[in-house]
């Protein structure tokens, strides 16, 4: 064991750096999904579409900014702007005109409504942005690279990947935890998550909470997409792949659990990059193995609460 670490310790260190950045992106998508589920009790299949649309929008705004010759540092705020635009438009529209009509329905119907939205949004993306890969990497290039020592050698990492992604994820995690525990709106959201019936009985306007949460969740997904757009090309179908991954994170974490989503994302991110080094063939299976493993031991996810059974 000691010998193994002497040989592979450095590689393991590199794997951790990569895994962290990946986990940060996974967290950004999954946390919004989990938040929405906690409050609305709807597993939003179209969440992956918000991710894709957020990325496309960021790339479009970024290209516009560049074409106007505006200052380069704008590349970073543009990512947040894209998230606000997508969340602010798509969120209320979908919640108000579609989801609100089906809150009383069976979960399967709710799930399918979002599946229908997913299919529709897949084509909407194609109609707006076409099929050619869309790429805008100003934000990544802006910050340059950092040389990480590796034995006698050194490995360049992008500062964007090393600092921005984990930084934003950490900020989101802490900010969200603070918001949910320390502000009135946040506490109302928590109240609805824990016990919807009691919360509405106490006079909480569930409609408002739902609208707010869904918009916020959509914005978080869009921010995830916007953050990934400087490093990854956007292509048709990117939403579907993101979706399955965030499902796995949410189920591993426990439904509605914010901190759980962070830990599950870390496990999946690190597990994946360690697999790329030491067992590449297992890379794609990592999220599912982790999820099934966790659910075997804890049937409600890492931090899930056992629901009281109706009698």
């Amino acid at each position: 064991m000691a010998d193994w670490f002497a040989d592979n310790g450095l590689l393991l260190g590199l794997a951790l750096l990569d895994g962290l950045a990946y986990a940060a992106l996974v967290f950004m998508v999954a946390v919004g999904l989990n938040l929405v589920f906690g409050v609305l009790r709807i597993l939003n299949v179209a969440h992956g579409s918000f991710f894709a649309i957020g990325g496309y929008t960021a790339a479009s705004i970024g290209a516009f900014v560049m074409a106007r010759g505006l200052p380069e540092w704008l590349a970073l705020p543009v990512l947040v702007l894209a998230a606000v635009v997508v969340g602010g438009i798509a969120g209320p529209l979908i919640e108000r005109f579609i989801l609100r009509r089906i809150y009383a329905e069976e979960p399967v119907l709710q799930l399918l409504v979002t599946f229908a939205l997913f299919m529709i949004l897949e084509d909407v993306q194609k109609l707006i942005w076409g099929v050619q890969p869309v790429h805008h990497d100003a934000a990544m290039r802006l910050l340059g690279t950092v040389d990480v020592p590796f034995g006698h050698d050194s490995i360049p990492f992008t500062a964007y990947q090393l600092y921005v992604l984990p930084g934003v994820a950490l900020f989101t995690l802490v900010g969200l935890a603070w918001f949910l525990r320390r502000t009135l709106t946040g506490r109302v959201i928590v109240a609805v998550t824990t016990d919807r019936e009691a919360a509405t009985a106490m006079g909480i306007d569930a409609k408002k909470v739902f609208l707010l949460t869904f918009t916020f969740g959509a914005a978080l997904a869009a921010l995830g997409g916007a953050l990934s757009s400087p490093t990854a090309a956007l292509v048709p179908g990117v939403g579907a792949g993101t979706m399955v991954l965030s499902f796995a994170v949410v189920a591993t974490a426990g439904l509605g659990q914010i901190e759980g989503a962070a830990i599950a994302a870390l496990m999946i991110g690190l597990g994946r990059s360690i697999a790329v080094y030491f067992l590449p063939e297992a890379e794609v299976l990592v999220p599912y193995i982790i999820m099934v493993g966790v659910l075997l031991v804890r049937p409600n996810g890492l931090f899930g609460v056992v629901e009281t059974r109706r009698i």
Binding site: L14, A15, A21, T231, A232
Partner: peptide, 29 residues
């Protein structure tokens, strides 16, 4: 959509030639 782990490995290994038949968005990325 993310090859940073693979790129780190390739950077560490320093092969003379890297062969890839990837295409489309993945090759761009």
């Amino acid at each position: 959509t993310d090859f940073s782990t693979e790129i780190t490995r390739l950077l560490a290994l320093r092969p003379e030639v890297i062969f890839t038949t990837s295409w489309g968005g993945e090759l761009d990325t």
